[in-house]
Amino acid sequence: MYSNEVSKQEKKSLWRFGTKEVVYAAIGAALYAVVTWAFNVWQIPGAGNVGVRPAVVLPMFFGIAFGPIVGFITGFVGNILADLLSGYGFWVWWDLGNGIMGLIPGLFSVLITNYKSGGSILRAEISVVLGVLFGMGLAAVSEMWVSGADMNTVIFGNFLPAFLTNVLWGLVLLPLLMVAYSAIVSQSGR
């Protein structure tokens, strides 16, 4: 296939998890960890005073490009690895939230027909908003169960800061990654 079109065969294999998906998920998770760690520990001042977590776009992009399982693992395992590298511990409910941020765009991957078409990018952007909404929503609500926080605290202290910054990173960076990936798809005939 030497075009940007995603083949029907690929569309049918939404839940496939073969060798390629294992490698993509592992690469995605490792990349998520490295980028998060670099911006956390290394303190790259690239984004000025914006909440510096550009890595959140990676589960979204890996979900869109390679399906929901790869997207989920990129976010879930990637966040575990990032926390391990940064020495922040192991917070499974936030790891799950990050996984969902990749899973939901992954579910939209069947609707992506051309990585640089306006329609596909729009669908991907919608998936970003839904993914962050459900992912960060779950993680934030879990704080009610874990820490005994009330709904106000959860919304204003946990959910909104995470939701707004993650959506912003996703909406701006995901289309750029999709267009760049479209060039790779064309060249390599994926």
Binding site: A25, I27, A30, A33, V77, L81
Partner: peptide, 8 residues
Amino acid sequence: TMELSFRF
């Protein structure tokens, strides 16, 4: 996958 991501 988890094992591999550590290696990468």
